[in-house]
């Protein structure tokens, strides 16, 4: 029997090296590109007519747009408008990577910590740069809670700084761990189906059906959580709110 971890293995379709760096085209890259092409198709083909009364595909594009637009407006305010395309891209990319990962024999790029960590680190570095650009050194006041005796500040400020630095880790591990756990579970129960055969395999098979529904929900939920946390972090940097 195969290991449930085998599904996460990176396979190089063809080797590619650029200036000493290994940039081979892998199964992960394949599904990232498929996700991008599908998302592009929905938005470009769906919005081709720009109809006043939208069709099915246009509705999908518009609902996605308004979902994230409302999220940015509610959590960041008007100052977040500039970053809306980025957060929309983030949400759509993660959503498509997560969801396409549920297709049998596909690969889930977001089940790799390096991918989610790169995105989370990019968000946190970006948010910090935005914070410093908007507030200068005043940005450090973000780590100092208001109305707290200075003795407590000695304790609280380091905690605040640590919690800020931990954000990229929590953000990336939340997504990665959810994908990893879900796919591993599916694989493990898939193994049970084979193991228990025609007689007893129906029970784990039924469980897989239910689990697949749950995983579909989680695929959406984790994309949503990643996007909304990015919004909240962005809001912190822009408004220095606590």
């Amino acid at each position: 029997m195969h290991s449930p971890m085998e599904q996460f293995e990176i396979k190089r379709w063809f080797d590619l090296h650029l200036g000493g760096l290994d940039v081979s085209f892998t199964n992960s890259a394949t599904w990232m590109i498929i996700a991008v092409i599908l998302a592009t198709a929905i938005f470009v083909v769906g919005m081709r007519q720009r109809a006043l009364v939208p069709g099915k595909l246009q509705s999908v594009a518009e609902i996605s747009y308004e979902f994230i637009a409302n999220m940015v407006r509610d959590n960041v305010g008007d100052a977040g408008k500039k970053y809306f395309p980025f957060i929309l891209t983030l949400f759509i990319f993660i959503l498509f990577c997560n969801t396409l990962g549920l297709v049998p024999y596909s690969f889930t790029p977001t089940s790799h910590i390096i991918v989610t960590f790169a995105m989370a680190l990019f968000v946190m570095v970006g948010v910090t740069v935005i914070g410093f650009a908007r507030h200068g050194l005043h940005f450090f006041s973000f780590f100092v809670p208001k109305g707290v005796p200075w003795v407590l500040l000695l304790l609280l400020v380091p905690i605040e700084i640590i919690s800020y630095l931990i954000r990229p880790f929590s953000l990336s591990i939340r997504l990665f761990a959810n994908m990893l756990a879900g796919h591993t579970m599916l694989k493990v129960f898939g193994g049970f189906v084979v193991m228990m055969g025609l007689l007893g395999g129906w029970a784990p098979l039924a469980f897989i059906v239910v689990l697949t529904g749950l995983e579909l929900l989680i695929a959406f939920l984790q994309a949503y959580v990643f996007a909304i946390l990015t919004c909240l972090y962005l809001n912190d940097a822009i408004h220095l709110s606590h």
Binding site: I10, R12, V23, S24, A35, F43, P85, I92
Partner: peptide
């Protein structure tokens, strides 16, 4: 390889989103 293609895919999608969608 993952980071490189993540950057390519994400940038491509970002361009599509910000310029067209």
């Amino acid at each position: 390889p993952q980071l490189a293609w993540l950057a390519i895919a994400f940038l491509a999608l970002y361009l599509v989103m910000s310029q067209i969608a």
